[in-house]
Amino acid sequence: MKRIGPGLLAIVLLTVPLWVGNPYYVHVLIMAGIFAILALSLNLLLGYTGLLSLGHTAFFGIGAYTSALLALRLDWPPWVGFLAAVLVAGLAGYGIGKVSLRLRGAYFVLVTISFAGVIYLVSVNWMELTNGPLGLPDVPPFSLGLPGLFELSIRTKPAAYYLVLAVAGAAYFLCHRLVRSRIGRGFIALRENEALAESVGINGTRYLVLAAVVSAAMAGAAGSLYAHYTRFVSPEVFLFTYTVTMVIMVVAGGKGTLVGPVLGAFLFTALPEALRAVTSWQWQMLLYGVFLILTVFFLPKGVIPTIETWLRERRASP
């Protein structure tokens, strides 16, 4: 079971475009993949270090704008823009970490919210650079290779699906390596008991800043994918609701697990789409809310931790 589960899942994920004919479903899966990267990124902070970033969409948006602007204004190949998006978002995470993490806790929450607010205002008001509220249309699609020599343009939905799957898979495995290492144990130690963590030699500030950088860089990667997939970036990428969605995905799926946020991303991307298909706008919001409350009520720790506890108890009492 333990062996075939992941193998089966890999086969399903790799063959999706072959048997899902409807491009709209593929689109939903692509968005779910982008949100899975965001949820994994937020989870690194919220789930492992215990820090709540309520401005996470800032890093997503920075990634999206960086990649889009480099492609539109400087004609850089999107994959270079992608790397730049990771870098710039990571730097932003470093800055935010440096200014706020000496004080921690609520202060970090406030700094991340304000940062997202400021970045939003910049994106709206710096017309020359960002085109303001009108946004940046005609972002080129993602492409691999070098222009002029060899270029593989990712225009179709199945191609975009595989790209997002690859990046989400990489994000998942990087998180996996990180949280199971001595550095990840450092994150968990700081979440659980900072004084004790420091007294066994864990440099709290350094590790929290590191977590912020990695998390922001991942969100930047998601932003870049988003920009080249939707081919349009506007200040809407900084909307607070995106952050709220990410938090819901992480918490409902199970923070501090790796599968949880990914599952949460799929559930909470697919759910609104499914509701949209069956009912009117007002009912969608209502049902979404009810579903959320039920999840919080019956699975307060999130889906994955609840299943884990259940399995452990079943094994303990055969």
């Binding site: 001595r182 550095i183 144990r185 968990i188 008991n193 004790l196 864990i202």
Partner: peptide, 24 residues
């Protein structure tokens, strides 16, 4: 004063932090 929600083994593994050398 412990890492309360973490397993006994992982508590000690966290304590071993300084003995590890591997970087990011």
């Amino acid at each position: 004063n412990l890492f309360h929600r973490v397993s006994v083994l992982d508590n000690v593994m966290i304590g071993l932090h300084l003995r590890g050398r591997m970087g990011f």
